[in-house]
Design a protein around this nucleic acid. Structure first.
Lengths: 215, 215
DNA sequence: TAACTTATGTTAATATATTAACAAAGGAGA
DNA sequence: TCTCCTTTGTTAATATATTAACATAAGTTA
């Protein structure tokens, strides 16, 4: 490792893989894996070792020639790059099945994310609590966003309400949206939106299935 | 349009975008949009018009020079390419919040997919029904897969059970897995696995947020 | 010590993906 | 009819991503 050269514009695909590496490493039993090679890590994700090393190289590398990577160093380094080293707060809008599934998602803590609010319009849900987080009416979103310094808003509402929800979150000051509705939400250019368009994954699965069936 | 040249190895990214185009088109009000230009379609997804045309070109094109695309033709063509023209059956394993969210997912029908089974190990869930689909014990998976000719299995179980569930689905004859657990599931090479590793999306969101914050 | 093995970092070569440029085709209006 | 505008299909140019090749470093064994 010579020097950090983080400002050299990191490829988009490298960031996605970095997240996959971190996800993979975090699931490893730490007693067994104190160290890991690019070969081992690659095989767990279905990549080639040289891809792993090339990705790491964009950040100056995480190891030293001859040695294998120290898992702790990898995790720490990647968390820093991905902005997961400082704790961030998030809220979930829409407390249907999907919203509740996400509210119970244990990985948030591992990623340094704290769920600080649940919101819905349904009066029967408002007042409930999931894992000690109260369900509030969406009217309270602006206040909570400010008081809790929320940086990420999760859109788990029905499709019809998704755009309005996004507008509300943005006007409340949130710059990061995690969208689970199927629509393409319109936002100002300084807002980051991460879409989880589930049907896209399902359709590509269908395509690949068709391919192997007809070969 | 000269001729279909589908056998020319379609780029992976083109298939993903094809799914996004179809998703976008299916959400359009059909009275208003009988036709659409590459420019309009591209802007709705945040792409350039030339990208849309290049993607379509891999299949010989969907229109005619001078005319805009007919939305019906686009949808029909893409459904055929993605293997959504013939109806496929799927089952969901794991009827927690996520499983129930997916079971209520209305888009399945639009994609020609029919939910024919829900499975769980929890005796309190077995016997219930969601949208007229009974929840059965996972022991019944092999029988149902055969009798209903199931082609896609959805893994919505806790992480600990994900690999076992996958093994069971594969041994029952399923070749397509849609995995919502965070782990990288091991399967024979002739099985297609589509991972929805939600934390990856969340991490890339965190990264982008960090970028705009520090600029 | 020397030869061999395994490992990472780095650069070069290849492959893939995106964007630009332009010909061909239709519609609208003078 | 002629010109202008818009559109798709197609090819060429550019940009990005992946893979291969190799130098360097550490550990191991004869």
């Amino acid at each position: 490792m010579t020097e950090k050269k983080v400002n050299k514009k990191i490829p988009k695909m490298t960031i996605i893989r970095l997240a996959r590496y971190l996800n993979c490493l975090s699931l490893l039993p730490r007693e067994l894996y104190k160290e890991i090679s690019s070969k081992e890590l690659a095989s767990k994700i279905g990549l080639k070792p040289t891809q792993v090393r090339q990705d790491f190289h964009h950040f100056g590398g995480f190891g030293q020639a001859g040695y294998r990577y120290k898992v702790d160093d990898l995790i720490k380094g990647m968390e820093e790059i991905l902005g997961l080293d400082r704790s961030q707060n998030l809220i979930i809008v829409g407390v249907g099945h999907l919203g509740q599934a996400l509210a119970n998602y244990r990985k948030f803590e591992d990623l340094g994310l704290r769920l600080v609010g649940l919101f819905d319009t349904n009066p029967r849900l408002v007042g409930m609590a999931i894992r000690d987080v109260k369900v509030r009416d969406i009217d309270e979103i602006p206040d909570i966003v400010k008081s809790e310094n929320v940086s990420i808003g999760v859109i788990a509402t029905p499709t019809e309400s998704a755009q309005i929800t996004a507008d509300l979150l943005v006007s409340s000051g949130i710059r990061g949206l995690w969208n689970f509705s199927p629509i393409n939400i319109l936002t100002p250019p300084d807002v980051i939106i991460q879409n989880e368009h589930l049907s896209v994954g399902l359709m590509t699965l269908s395509y690949k299935l068709k391919q192997i069936m007809s070969s």
